[in-house]
Design a protein around this nucleic acid. Structure first.
Lengths: 225, 225
DNA sequence: AGTAAAATATGATATATATCATAGAAATGA
DNA sequence: TCATTTCTATGATATATATCATATTTTACT
């Protein structure tokens, strides 16, 4: 069983507040797991009873709408935690988590984490701040969905993807989403998403090569938001 | 200065975890304030440096979209707290709060609340659970905005308003929103909102008398969601 | 009470976006 | 390597919703 002390998740997440003893305890009770691209980590309505640490890879958090379409609420990448909200509320998870790439995740049972809440105030505050950040972001997204056009949301999302996940040597977006997934992030029909990408391409804002997307005119894309 | 011990906010909010001593301290440092309908409690971008307890009345939390339209993110009513997210994140507020009715609110400075976080674990957990609830709700609203039609959102919002704020003796919704406000809750143009209300009226789902709205066919409204 | 301002209502029209249909390209698997 | 499925692309069309215009009603003000 690998140690938690040098783990990337520990560096970047709320877990950075844990001391050496706590980390040793953590390493003992955690379970590691490889998740293949496309695999489900947990599904809406499940009882998870713990949190996941994303050590490597990216996953999407989705919510099923009554119309049968999935909506991508958030992307979660290495260094982040998964399932905090549901653990604290003591409820089933309200979102599904599906790997977008091969992933490495660790699972920490609820009992262990709840102990940290009691004894380590800094840890509690870190978790609280993370969730507050998520809330602020969710409010902002809600307004985006309600008030912005699909075109604006597409531009914004493309910029976000490049900012957050970077680009390959050829300049294309590092993170590989299908058109369908991109559409379900911005909240539109797949065909509309494809059509707009095609428009952006013709306008020289982006370049499409197969499923690779390269942002060509960042300034103009920013102006569209 | 009135006591906090019997206050409605204390009964229903995270503050219920506070003990007698803490409540006495609270009563000493809080400031009370009457807010008239339409008055601004705080505005997006302000530094609030504390939280508000809503003792009476209802306010809307709004966010300005780049297109110049306000979007109502949430309604907050008596017994609830205001400004927790921003206080914890130690950031300016991301939403504006405007009274929809005459209100009575108390302000508690940040220093006081932060003390409770350190010493009272139950209080921390209560706040955390509240914010987690807000996050779950925000995620759900985000998906609603992205995936549901305006008609569905109107039906859902009307049911929500009756559930949450109740009805008058004549059966009409107790909370009085302008059509404009209703539109900015569901994320549509004012005219579209008015038109759909008119449609619902003709279908016998609701009844309109002046600006009063009475839900007539709850079952059918629920089916629409 | 009377007037100005705001809110509600409704029609006409424009526009964005969804849906349906079809075809080609790319990925996957035996 | 070929076949089957999934993904991308684009046209044609339908539909929901926004926008503009105007009238009526309600509210607020002095």
């Amino acid at each position: 069983m690998s140690k938690c002390e040098q783990c990337i998740v520990r560096e970047f997440s709320s877990l950075k507040a844990l001391n050496k003893d706590e980390l040793v305890k953590l390493a003992e009770c955690k379970t590691s797991r490889l998740v293949k691209k496309g695999e489900i980590i947990f599904e809406e309505g499940e009882n998870v009873n713990g949190i996941f640490c994303v050590k490597d890879g990216v996953c999407k958090l989705t919510k099923l709408s009554p119309n049968g379409k999935d909506h991508i609420v958030k992307l979660v990448t290495k260094g982040e935690l998964l399932g905090q909200r549901s653990m604290i509320s003591d409820e089933p998870v309200n979102l599904s988590a599906v790997a977008l790439e091969d992933m490495q995740v660790c699972f920490i049972p609820k009992s262990e984490i709840m102990g940290f809440f009691d004894k380590n105030n800094q840890f509690s505050m870190n978790v609280m701040r993370t969730i507050c950040g998520d809330l602020k972001e969710a409010d902002s997204q809600m307004v985006n969905m309600a008030q912005k056009t699909v075109k604006e949301r597409l531009a914004e999302t493309l910029l976000y993807l490049q900012d957050t996940f970077g680009k390959n040597e050829d300049g294309s977006l590092k993170i590989q989403l299908t058109r369908d997934e991109l559409a379900s992030m911005i909240g539109t029909a797949t065909e509309s998403c494809i059509r707009l990408l095609s428009d952006f391409n013709k306008l020289g804002l982006i370049e499409l090569k197969g499923k690779k997307i390269t942002l060509k005119n960042i300034a103009q894309l920013k102006k569209m938001i």
